[in-house]
Design a protein around this nucleic acid. Structure first.
Length: 611
DNA sequence: GTACCTATAC
């Protein structure tokens, strides 16, 4: 590179026209670029140029050139050192930034407030509280701790790297003139570590002290309200945001929309969605995800609407709509969307691949799930768990166990959800002793403490195998008060194996925890019916009518061609009903042929309205 | 010539 050409290049506006370069320096820089070393003698002007060059190199990602130039300059001043530290920090190379800082101090160069804030950002990036503490000490020694930049970065470093917010709060308390950054840093410090109420308290104090709000602090606070799930908090935020005039700032609007979805106020979400004048992809994705989580097939309608508006879906969109297909068991639709994912080259996105595994498994195509699983460039705990769950629900217990062992070999540590996957797979495949072995070794071998849901899985494991008394003993020996899921597992087992005594007990426990649970009454009455206790059966049904609880009709649906047909028990309406009954007859015939015992009780309820 | 927080969707 020719330095004079460089300086005359209008695309390189680094050197102001009033700076005249010393000849020797120009020669030196030229030598730098031609690898012919003649070190320049720096002057103040040349130091400014060097700093500008270093900053520009970092900005354009030419890190090696920045380093080479820096290394060749003999008497670097503090600004140049700082440019180097901040350059590395801006590129995420925090250890390099730290190394330059150490080199600088060891050479006796004193830092200024710019250096301290830059290197503190590197400490934050390294998540090193000890390095941060050293820098804090140095800042105090040089009297730089009163600068707002230093105070804000100190706070951020402590908030990110320390186990508690105490140190960050200490710095915050001592800031005389807090600015918007100080407040935002404090709020995100709390919310990023999951202390939502802590963050909201700081936000409230910000309002009380009359600090000007900005869209950033508002969207963070709205997110906090969404994660609490209390609609009244969110409503207050909405009112406040309107007062500030931020209600149609897109990130603020999107976080409000998300808040309504997470607070289960879907109608509010829908209304607000239509009010937002200019929507972006995130706006659409947020509402699609909201509908999907609530189990509504409107997520798919909205997806089509979005496409018709000419928007291009991304990984977030596809993850939601694939999840919708999974939960509605719409294989045909899921496959078409998978085609769209392929077309756009989005396969390989981790959450999306995980959703695809789940979708194919829930649509009955566990082999396709496995294919996706095998082709994934990377896998996380969710990938392994989804695949195991897929195997489990299809009765492939051995495959699930094989996968669990493979997961351990790959160095991933299991959590409670993985154990739920393995245990439920064992349960569905009748692998009782294997399941019990896993349960008994969870805490000792894998340091995972069983929770209520795990106990529920083991009760289910024993119960399905007909070992109902042992299941009950396990419930009695549980280290915590059994919840509805545990008793429900026992009740299910009692229904399957006709144990009306324990069934009554389980039902009573469930009703004491969740009164008016119509499904519990129905199962209990069915247990009595199967046991021939018709008097008890009648009593339960009468009790149900007396308290006015009515079981919601269970809806089934089937996808034929491009159409989804839904039907309820005893359905006689609709042109497709005849086809449904014909399908049912075919299934019954097939079950007889393969030697499956028909549960006559079950069949009876398929044909008659039980509610 | 060098510095702080910065939000929303899986």
């Amino acid at each position: 590179m020719n330095i004079s050409r460089l300086l005359s290049n209008s695309h390189f506006p680094l050197v102001p026209p009033h700076i005249r370069l010393p000849l020797v320096w120009t020669r030196g820089l030229a030598a730098h670029h031609s690898n012919d070393l003649h070190l320049p003698i720096p002057t103040e002007a040349s130091s400014i140029l060097a700093t500008k060059l270093v900053t520009s190199y970092f900005h354009r990602g030419r890190l090696e050139q920045a380093r080479k130039l820096f290394d060749e300059i003999p008497n670097r001043d503090v600004v140049l050192w700082t440019a180097m530290i901040s350059g590395y920090t801006s590129r995420g190379l925090y250890s390099n930034a730290w190394a330059v800082f150490c080199q600088m101090t060891s050479q006796g160069m004193d830092p200024n407030e710019f250096t301290i804030s830059s290197v503190l950002k590197a400490c934050k990036g390294m998540e090193s509280c000890s390095c941060g503490l050293m820098v804090h000490g140095l800042a105090l020694k040089h009297g730089l701790d009163g600068c707002i930049y230093v105070e804000n970065t100190l706070m951020d470093m402590y908030a990110t790297c320390c186990p508690s917010m105490d140190d960050a709060y200490m710095v915050f308390r001592h800031i005389r003139e807090k600015n918007a950054v100080s407040w935002t840093t404090m709020i995100t410090g709390y919310t990023h570590r999951g202390d939502v109420y802590g963050g909201l308290q700081v936000f409230r104090r910000m309002i009380q002290e009359g600090v000007d709000l900005n869209p950033f602090s508002c969207s963070i606070a709205i997110r906090a309200c969404a994660s609490i799930g209390i609609p009244s908090f969110g409503k207050q935020m909405h009112v406040m945001v309107i007062k500030c005039g931020f209600d149609f700032n897109l990130p603020v609007a999107n976080s409000l929309l998300d808040m309504y979805c997470r607070c289960n106020s879907l109608s509010e979400a829908k209304r607000y969605f239509h009010e937002i004048p200019q929507k972006d992809l995130i706006t659409w994705n947020t509402l699609i995800a909201g509908y999907e989580k609530s189990g509504s097939d409107w997520s798919l309608n909205l997806f089509l609407h979005m496409l018709s508006e000419g928007l291009s879906p991304n990984c977030f969109t596809f993850t939601s709509v694939i999840a919708a297909c999974a939960n509605l068991a719409l294989l045909n639709c899921g496959e078409q969307i998978h085609g769209g994912i392929f077309q756009r080259g989005l396969q390989g996105n981790l959450p999306l691949d995980n959703a695809l595994i789940d979708m194919y498994a829930k649509c009955g195509c566990v082999d396709d799930s496995r294919r996706i699983f095998d082709e994934m460039p990377q896998r996380d705990l969710v990938s392994w768990t989804s695949m195991m769950m897929g195997y489990g629900t299809h009765g492939y217990g051995k495959e699930a166990i094989g996968l669990f062992n493979k997961m351990l070999d790959s160095g991933i540590r299991p959590d409670q959800i993985v154990f739920m996957g393995v245990l439920s797979a064992c349960s569905h495949a009748g692998l009782v002793s294997e399941g019990l072995n896993y349960f008994n070794s969870m805490a000792t071998n894998y340091h995972v403490t069983p929770n209520q849901e795990i106990y529920g899985c083991v009760v289910d494991l024993l119960g399905r195998a007909g070992r109902i008394k042992e299941a009950y003993q396990l419930i009695e020996a549980m280290p915590f008060k059994p919840d509805v899921s545990v008793w429900s597992a026992l009740l299910g087992a009692c229904k399957a194996h006709g144990d009306s005594n324990l069934g009554r007990l389980a039902a009573q426990k469930i009703l004491s925890l969740r009164p008016n649970g119509a499904d519990t009454y129905v199962i209990l009455s069915n247990i009595y019916a199967a046991d021939g206790k018709w008097g008890e059966f009648a009593k339960v049904r009468k009790l149900m009518r007396g308290i006015g609880c009515k079981k919601e009709a269970g809806v089934s649906w089937i996808e034929v061609g491009n159409q989804v047909y839904s039907f309820v028990v005893g359905d006689k309406v609709g042109s497709h009903i005849e086809m449904v009954y014909r399908g049912l007859e075919m299934l019954v015939q097939h079950m007889k042929e393969v030697g499956n015992d028909l549960d006559s009780d079950c069949l009876l309820h398929l044909l008659e309205d039980e509610s």
